[in-house]
C-alpha cells in the first residue's frame, strides 16, 4: 500500500528536486574560515611586534621621556587587545558561515536522523508503522528531498548573512587598515629612536671609523700615490683592523636592530594586505552565493600564509 502511494509521490519529488537543485550551489566556506583564523593570528602578531618595539624604545630614550613613552606603549597594547577581540569575533562569524554551509550539505543526514528519532517516538506512543522497507523508502525520500531543501535554505541563509555583514566587514577592514598604517609609523618611529640611541652611544667610534675612511678616500683621490701615502694607507688599514674588538659588536647591534625592524615591518604590511584580501573575499563569497557559483579565496589564503611565515620568522629572531 505504501509502495503504491510512493510511486506518484516520487514523480513529484523528482520534479521538486530538479527545480531546487538548479538554484543551490553552496561555496566551500571552510578555506575562508581557516584564513580568518590566520588573519586573527596576524593581527595579534602585529600588535605584539609594535608593543615590543615601543617597549624597546623606552630603553633608548632619556630618563625624563621614559615614563611618557612607557605609558604610550601600555596604552597601545591595551587598545590593541580590542583589535584581537574583534578578530576573535571575525573567527566566530566565519565559523558560523561554515556551519551554515555544512548544515546545507548534510541535509540528507539531518532528515534521516530526524526520521529515526520520530520512528523511535512512534514506537513509544504505539503508532503502527508501515513495514520496515516502506519506512526506509520514506526516510530515503525525505532525506533526498530535505538534502535539496537544506541546500536551498543554507544558500539563502548564507546570502542573507553575507549581505547583512558586508557593511560591517567594510568598516572593520577600513579601521584595521588605518590601525595598521598607524602601527607602521609606530614601528618606524620606535626603530628610529633605537637607531638614534645607538648612534649616540657609538658616536666616538663611528667618528673614528669615518675619519679613517675619509683619509683613505682622500689619499686614493690624489691618483698617484707616493711612498708616504702608501705607508699611511697601510697604517690606516692596521688602525681599522685594530678596531675589530669594538667595531664588530657595534655593527652587530645595528644589524640586529635593522633585521628585527625589517621583519616586524613586513609582518604589519602583510597583515594589512591580508585584511584587505579578507574583505574582498567576503564580497566575493556574497556574489558567489547569489550567482550560485564556486569561489576561489586563493588570494586571501596566500596573503594569510605570507603573514604566517613572517610571524614564524619574527619568532625565530
Amino acid at each position: 500500500m505504501h509502495g503504491k502511494f510512493l510511486k506518484p509521490f516520487a514523480g513529484l519529488v523528482a520534479g521538486l528536486v530538479a527545480v531546487l537543485a538548479g538554484c543551490a550551489t553552496l561555496p566551500d566556506v571552510a578555506p575562508y574560515r581557516d584564513a580568518t583564523v590566520q588573519l586573527r593570528s596576524a593581527v595579534l602578531a602585529s600588535g605584539n611586534a609594535v608593543g615590543a618595539e615601543l617597549r624597546n624604545a623606552t630603553l633608548a630614550v632619556e630618563e625624563k621621556d621614559r615614563a611618557n613613552l612607557e605609558k604610550s606603549a601600555k596604552t597601545f597594547s591595551e587598545n590593541w587587545q580590542v583589535r584581537v577581540e574583534s578578530a576573535d569575533a571575525l573567527v566566530v562569524y566565519a565559523q558560523a558561515l561554515a556551519e551554515i554551509t555544512k548544515a546545507g550539505k548534510e541535509g540528507g543526514d539531518t532528515a534521516r536522523s530526524l526520521a529515526a528519532a520520530l520512528e523511535q517516538l512512534a514506537g513509544g506512543v504505539g503508532i503502527a508503522l508501515p513495514p520496515a522497507g516502506a519506512v526506509a523508502t520514506l526516510a530515503d525520500t525525505a532525506a533526498f528531498v530535505y538534502a535539496q531543501v537544506a541546500a536551498v535554505r543554507a544558500s539563502r541563509s548564507l546570502e542573507d548573512a553575507l549581505v547583512a555583514a558586508q557593511p560591517a566587514v567594510n568598516e572593520i577592514a577600513a579601521k584595521l587598515g588605518k590601525d595598521l598604517d598607524a602601527s607602521l609609523t609606530l614601528i618606524d618611529a620606535a626603530y628610529e629612536l633605537q637607531r638614534l640611541a645607538l648612534a649616540d652611544r657609538y658616536d666616538k667610534e663611528i667618528g673614528f671609523l669615518k675619519a679613517l675612511e675619509r683619509e683613505r678616500r682622500k689619499l686614493y683621490a690624489q691618483g698617484q700615490l707616493s711612498r708616504e701615502d702608501e705607508k699611511r694607507l697601510k697604517e690606516i688599514g692596521e688602525l681599522f683592523d685594530s678596531t675589530k674588538s669594538w667595531r664588530e659588536p657595534m655593527q652587530a647591534a645595528f644589524a640586529q636592530l635593522e633585521k628585527r625592524y625589517e621583519v616586524e615591518r613586513e609582518v604589519v604590511v602583510a597583515t594589512k594586505a591580508a585584511v584587505a584580501e579578507w574583505a574582498a573575499a567576503h564580497r566575493g563569497l556574497a556574489i558567489a552565493v547569489r550567482e550560485g557559483r564556486t569561489i576561489s579565496v586563493e588570494g586571501l589564503i596566500q596573503a594569510t600564509l605570507e603573514a604566517r611565515e613572517l610571524v614564524r620568522r619574527l619568532r625565530a629572531l
Binding site: V92, Y93, A96, A103, A164
Partner: peptide
Amino acid sequence: LGKEFQDLADAASTSAS
C-alpha cells in the same frame, strides 16, 4: 564592530541550527 560580528555569528548559527 566586534559585538556586531558576534551578533551576526549568533544569527548565522541559529540559521545553521
